[in-house]
Deep mutational scan, measured.
Amino acid sequence: MQRVNMIMAESPGLITICLLGYLLSAECTVFLDHENANKILNRPKRYNSGKLEEFVQGNLERECMEEKCSFEEAREVFENTERTTEFWKQYVDGDQCESNPCLNGGSCKDDINSYECWCPFGFEGKNCELDVTCNIKNGRCEQFCKNSADNKVVCSCTEGYRLAENQKSCEPAVPFPCGRVSVSQTSKLTRAETVFPDVDYVNSTEAETILDNITQSTQSFNDFTRVVGGEDAKPGQFPWQVVLNGKVDAFCGGSIVNEKWIVTAAHCVETGVKITVVAGEHNIEETEHTEQKRNVIRIIPHHNYNAAINKYNHDIALLELDEPLVLNSYVTPICIADKEYTNIFLKFGSGYVSGWGRVFHKGRSALVLQYLRVPLVDRATCLRSTKFTIYNNMFCAGFHEGGRDSCQGDSGGPHVTEVEGTSFLTGIISWGEECAMKGKYGIYTKVSRYVNWIKEKTKLT
């Protein structure tokens, strides 16, 4: 034993070699072989497995989906700052455009905790909710729209109204504003409101030439003092309507412009014939205590009207009353817009006519005020429907199939267009061939041609 100890002390290297040989010859039971080890760690190889990531292109799944990435790591994937920024906006807080917040056709661009709407022409605001041009839906104005110097929408209202708090709607500024039905039992019968379409306001006024200088022999019209197929109006439903009495009662109609003036057809009036105007009328054979009678003290036909040349060209006249009318729910003026808007309103496509005229061709006159909704007829169809001249200051309205029309005794009465609950004068009943005849239409004086003249002559002093 002493000898062994001496050998170990003198030859430590020998001992180490012996131990190493023993270990190498022993069977290893701690580690699995290569094949079995792979069965336990069965993990798919990654895209760049075996390579240094710093030297390969980034992978979106590896960089940002398996674990949260930084902007720089995302930049490695896209290799483009702009594309990385677009991805980053949604990656950080989701897609803010998912709810489609942009209105009126706006395009949404996502941002971090926010979004941006790219608005089409005519709109602005956070969600493109603000109209900035009158060309689109009248700028959301209830009545009139004008573009300011910086191309912003400025709404306005006709006389007797003021802008509401929203700067879009119009509200009454006087007790009985024009064009409004205020009798409670008839307010439910107000005709369907007309909503502004998209309009090209630059070209809204037709490029028409008034044929002022045409000389033409007097034409022989049949029954051209021209509501057939209409309905009984309720008291106060058309408070701007008046009836004219002269040699015979209810020979023509008219509309209240203001307390002192009536507008009617020029062919209705004769110099030297006494005319009485009755406002607030409903049943011409009954006294309903809503009527107001006034005498006409002055007749002003349009300066281009000449019955000797043509009885229905420039067929418009103004009547001055001896005493002002007292405005109330049964006696209310009709609204008159400017030339541009009167023309736009007419193009809405349908209007209402009213009167006490004959209820059928050569038949009896109506006792109760009649009204009828009539569609506008395109000019080409209008011209083809008659052998008589249709001037540019006239328009056609009615039904091709016949059966409904204005008729004798309705002449001078109103053709009105309702705009968001307020009625505007767009025409004056003038003439036609018979009444409600198939293929024939009622012919009306186009008020847009005469609004400046009306307003100039009827100013209240």
Score class of each variant (00 low, 15 high):
2 Q>V: 14
2 Q>I: 10
4 V>W: 07
6 M>E: 04
10 E>G: 11
10 E>P: 12
12 P>C: 09
16 T>L: 09
17 I>Y: 11
18 C>D: 01
20 L>K: 01
20 L>V: 06
20 L>F: 09
21 G>T: 12
23 L>T: 02
24 L>N: 01
25 S>R: 03
26 A>T: 12
26 A>C: 10
26 A>H: 01
27 E>H: 08
27 E>I: 01
30 V>E: 08
32 L>S: 10
33 D>S: 08
38 N>A: 09
39 K>Q: 08
41 L>H: 13
41 L>N: 15
42 N>C: 09
42 N>T: 11
43 R>N: 12
46 R>L: 05
48 N>D: 15
50 G>C: 13
52 L>S: 11
53 E>G: 09
54 E>M: 07
55 F>Y: 08
57 Q>C: 06
58 G>W: 03
60 L>P: 15
61 E>H: 12
62 R>F: 11
65 M>G: 03
65 M>I: 14
68 K>G: 05
76 E>P: 15
77 V>Y: 10
80 N>A: 09
82 E>W: 05
85 T>D: 09
85 T>E: 07
85 T>F: 04
86 E>T: 15
86 E>G: 15
87 F>I: 15
87 F>K: 15
88 W>D: 15
88 W>G: 15
90 Q>T: 07
93 D>L: 12
95 D>Y: 10
98 E>N: 12
99 S>Q: 15
100 N>Y: 11
102 C>H: 01
103 L>R: 10
106 G>K: 04
107 S>D: 07
107 S>Y: 06
107 S>L: 06
108 C>N: 02
109 K>F: 08
112 I>V: 11
114 S>Q: 13
116 E>H: 06
120 P>T: 06
123 F>Q: 14
124 E>P: 11
124 E>L: 12
125 G>I: 02
126 K>P: 12
127 N>F: 11
129 E>T: 05
134 C>P: 03
136 I>R: 10
137 K>V: 12
138 N>F: 05
140 R>N: 14
147 N>F: 07
147 N>V: 07
148 S>Y: 05
149 A>R: 07
150 D>P: 07
150 D>Q: 08
150 D>S: 08
151 N>E: 09
152 K>C: 05
152 K>G: 10
153 V>E: 11
155 C>E: 00
155 C>S: 00
158 T>S: 06
159 E>P: 04
161 Y>K: 00
162 R>K: 08
162 R>Q: 07
162 R>M: 05
163 L>N: 02
164 A>M: 09
165 E>P: 06
166 N>T: 03
166 N>W: 01
167 Q>V: 06
168 K>P: 02
171 E>A: 08
171 E>V: 05
174 V>F: 04
176 F>M: 04
177 P>H: 01
177 P>M: 01
179 G>E: 00
181 V>Q: 12
182 S>C: 03
184 S>W: 07
188 K>Q: 11
192 A>D: 10
193 E>F: 11
194 T>I: 11
195 V>I: 07
195 V>K: 03
196 F>Y: 10
198 D>A: 10
198 D>V: 09
199 V>M: 07
199 V>R: 12
199 V>L: 09
200 D>P: 09
202 V>A: 12
204 S>T: 09
208 E>N: 12
209 T>I: 09
211 L>R: 04
213 N>C: 07
213 N>Y: 08
215 T>R: 07
217 S>P: 10
217 S>H: 06
218 T>P: 11
218 T>A: 05
220 S>W: 03
220 S>I: 10
221 F>W: 08
224 F>N: 08
224 F>C: 06
225 T>M: 11
229 G>S: 12
230 G>D: 02
231 E>H: 12
231 E>Q: 06
231 E>T: 07
232 D>C: 08
236 G>N: 05
236 G>D: 03
248 V>Y: 09
253 G>E: 05
253 G>N: 00
256 I>C: 01
256 I>K: 00
257 V>D: 00
260 K>C: 02
261 W>V: 01
261 W>G: 00
261 W>P: 00
262 I>H: 00
263 V>N: 00
263 V>S: 02
264 T>Y: 00
264 T>V: 04
265 A>D: 00
267 H>D: 03
267 H>W: 02
268 C>W: 00
268 C>Q: 00
268 C>A: 00
269 V>D: 02
269 V>L: 08
269 V>M: 06
269 V>T: 05
270 E>I: 05
270 E>N: 10
270 E>G: 06
271 T>G: 09
273 V>P: 10
274 K>N: 10
274 K>Q: 07
275 I>C: 03
275 I>R: 00
277 V>H: 01
278 V>W: 06
279 A>L: 00
279 A>T: 03
279 A>M: 01
280 G>T: 01
280 G>H: 02
281 E>S: 04
282 H>G: 08
283 N>L: 11
285 E>F: 12
290 T>Q: 05
290 T>I: 07
293 K>A: 05
293 K>R: 12
294 R>W: 01
294 R>G: 01
294 R>T: 00
296 V>E: 00
297 I>V: 12
297 I>A: 09
298 R>M: 03
298 R>H: 08
301 P>G: 04
301 P>N: 09
302 H>N: 05
302 H>D: 02
306 N>S: 08
307 A>P: 11
307 A>N: 08
309 I>Y: 04
313 N>Y: 08
314 H>P: 02
317 A>C: 07
317 A>Q: 00
317 A>T: 02
318 L>W: 00
318 L>T: 01
320 E>V: 00
320 E>H: 02
321 L>M: 06
324 P>F: 02
324 P>C: 03
325 L>W: 04
326 V>P: 01
327 L>V: 13
327 L>N: 00
327 L>H: 03
327 L>A: 03
327 L>W: 09
328 N>R: 01
329 S>V: 06
331 V>M: 00
332 T>G: 07
335 C>G: 02
338 D>H: 06
339 K>C: 15
340 E>A: 13
344 I>E: 12
348 F>L: 10
348 F>D: 12
350 S>P: 11
350 S>H: 11
352 Y>H: 13
352 Y>R: 06
354 S>P: 10
355 G>W: 14
355 G>F: 13
356 W>A: 07
357 G>A: 15
358 R>M: 11
360 F>L: 15
361 H>V: 15
361 H>D: 14
361 H>A: 03
363 G>C: 07
363 G>Y: 09
366 A>R: 05
366 A>N: 09
366 A>I: 13
368 V>H: 14
368 V>K: 14
369 L>A: 14
370 Q>N: 08
371 Y>I: 10
372 L>W: 11
373 R>I: 07
374 V>Y: 03
374 V>I: 15
376 L>D: 01
377 V>D: 01
377 V>G: 03
377 V>M: 14
378 D>N: 12
379 R>E: 15
379 R>V: 14
381 T>E: 10
381 T>N: 15
382 C>W: 02
382 C>Y: 02
384 R>D: 14
385 S>M: 05
385 S>C: 13
385 S>L: 07
385 S>R: 14
386 T>R: 13
387 K>Y: 09
388 F>R: 13
388 F>M: 14
389 T>Q: 10
390 I>V: 10
396 C>E: 01
399 F>I: 15
401 E>P: 14
402 G>E: 14
405 D>L: 15
405 D>G: 13
406 S>G: 11
406 S>Q: 11
407 C>Y: 07
407 C>K: 04
407 C>L: 12
408 Q>W: 14
409 G>T: 07
409 G>C: 14
410 D>V: 14
413 G>T: 13
413 G>E: 02
414 P>G: 14
414 P>V: 13
420 E>I: 12
420 E>G: 12
421 G>S: 06
421 G>N: 14
421 G>D: 12
423 S>V: 14
423 S>M: 12
423 S>A: 06
424 F>W: 08
425 L>T: 00
426 T>P: 00
426 T>Q: 01
426 T>F: 00
427 G>W: 00
429 I>W: 14
430 S>A: 10
430 S>H: 07
430 S>C: 06
431 W>H: 05
432 G>V: 11
434 E>N: 13
434 E>F: 13
435 C>A: 04
436 A>E: 15
436 A>V: 02
439 G>R: 13
440 K>R: 15
441 Y>A: 08
441 Y>M: 11
442 G>C: 13
443 I>M: 08
446 K>F: 01
447 V>W: 00
448 S>H: 13
449 R>K: 08
450 Y>N: 02
451 V>N: 04
453 W>H: 00
454 I>T: 01
457 K>R: 13
459 K>N: 13
459 K>Y: 12
